[in-house]
Protein backbone atom coordinates (compact mmCIF):
# COMPACT_ATOMS: atom_id res chain seq x y z
CA UNK A 1 0.00 0.00 0.00
CA UNK A 2 1.68 3.19 -1.11
CA UNK A 3 -1.00 5.74 -0.18
CA UNK A 4 -0.16 8.03 2.63
CA UNK A 5 -2.26 10.36 4.75
CA UNK A 6 -0.94 13.51 6.40
CA UNK A 7 -2.13 14.56 9.88
CA UNK A 8 -4.40 17.11 8.20
CA UNK A 9 -6.08 14.34 6.18
CA UNK A 10 -6.60 12.37 9.38
CA UNK A 11 -8.10 15.36 11.25
CA UNK A 12 -10.66 15.73 8.46
CA UNK A 13 -11.66 12.05 8.49
CA UNK A 14 -11.68 11.20 12.21
CA UNK A 15 -15.43 11.60 12.71
CA UNK A 16 -16.07 9.38 9.70
CA UNK A 17 -13.69 6.87 11.26
CA UNK A 18 -15.57 6.97 14.60
CA UNK A 19 -18.94 6.64 12.82
CA UNK A 20 -17.64 3.74 10.74
CA UNK A 21 -18.38 5.65 7.54
CA UNK A 22 -14.94 5.08 5.99
CA UNK A 23 -14.30 2.16 3.68
CA UNK A 24 -11.98 -0.61 4.77
CA UNK A 25 -8.99 0.28 2.61
CA UNK A 26 -8.93 3.92 3.66
CA UNK A 27 -9.48 2.85 7.26
CA UNK A 28 -6.40 0.65 7.12
CA UNK A 29 -4.25 3.50 5.77
CA UNK A 30 -5.60 5.74 8.54
CA UNK A 31 -4.77 3.13 11.18
CA UNK A 32 -1.22 2.82 9.83
CA UNK A 33 -0.79 6.55 10.37
CA UNK A 34 -2.55 6.73 13.75
CA UNK A 35 -0.50 3.98 15.35
CA UNK A 36 2.70 5.85 14.49
CA UNK A 37 1.44 9.35 15.31
CA UNK A 38 0.92 10.38 18.92
CA UNK A 39 -0.95 13.59 18.02
CA UNK A 40 -3.51 11.84 15.85
CA UNK A 41 -3.91 9.07 18.43
CA UNK A 42 -4.53 11.63 21.19
CA UNK A 43 -7.00 13.45 18.99
CA UNK A 44 -8.86 10.22 18.25
CA UNK A 45 -8.96 9.23 21.94
CA UNK A 46 -10.15 12.64 23.13
CA UNK A 47 -12.73 12.94 20.35
CA UNK A 48 -14.16 9.52 21.23
CA UNK A 49 -14.16 10.39 24.92
CA UNK A 50 -15.98 13.68 24.19
CA UNK A 51 -18.84 11.64 22.72
CA UNK A 52 -18.78 9.15 25.61
CA UNK A 53 -18.90 11.96 28.21
CA UNK A 54 -21.71 13.70 26.32
CA UNK A 55 -23.78 10.51 26.42
CA UNK A 56 -22.93 9.66 30.01
CA UNK A 57 -23.85 13.10 31.32
CA UNK A 58 -27.15 13.14 29.38
CA UNK A 59 -28.63 9.79 30.27
CA UNK A 60 -32.34 9.50 29.62
CA UNK A 61 -34.51 10.82 32.48
CA UNK A 62 -38.00 9.72 33.35
CA UNK A 63 -40.59 12.15 32.07
CA UNK A 64 -42.52 13.57 35.05
CA UNK A 65 -46.08 12.21 35.08
CA UNK A 66 -47.55 15.69 35.56
CA UNK A 67 -46.11 16.82 32.20
CA UNK A 68 -47.68 13.86 30.37
CA UNK A 69 -51.03 14.41 32.12
CA UNK A 70 -50.96 18.05 31.06
CA UNK A 71 -50.52 17.00 27.42
CA UNK A 72 -53.51 14.58 27.69
CA UNK A 73 -55.57 17.34 29.27
CA UNK A 74 -54.68 19.98 26.65
CA UNK A 75 -55.51 17.65 23.79
CA UNK A 76 -58.77 16.50 25.37
CA UNK A 77 -60.08 20.03 26.02
CA UNK A 78 -59.07 21.22 22.54
CA UNK A 79 -60.26 18.31 20.44
CA UNK A 80 -62.80 16.28 22.40
CA UNK A 81 -65.72 15.61 20.12
Amino acid sequence: MDRYFSCKDIYRMLSGYIDDEIDTMVREIMEEHIKECERCLSLLHTLEKTIVFSRETHRRKKVPERFVKKVYYEIRIRYKR
Binding site: S15, G16, D19, T46
Partner: peptide
Protein backbone atom coordinates in the same frame (compact mmCIF):
# COMPACT_ATOMS: atom_id res chain seq x y z
CA UNK B 1 -24.89 16.24 8.95
CA UNK B 2 -21.36 14.83 8.78
CA UNK B 3 -19.73 18.26 8.50
CA UNK B 4 -21.76 19.78 11.34
CA UNK B 5 -21.23 16.73 13.51
CA UNK B 6 -17.46 16.79 12.98
CA UNK B 7 -17.13 20.50 13.70
CA UNK B 8 -19.32 20.23 16.82
CA UNK B 9 -17.28 17.32 18.16
CA UNK B 10 -13.99 19.14 17.57
CA UNK B 11 -15.31 22.25 19.32
CA UNK B 12 -16.62 20.31 22.34
CA UNK B 13 -13.37 18.34 22.50
CA UNK B 14 -11.48 21.61 22.62
CA UNK B 15 -13.73 22.90 25.43
CA UNK B 16 -13.22 19.66 27.39
CA UNK B 17 -9.45 19.96 26.86
Amino acid sequence: VKTRSHRSRLYLREKLS
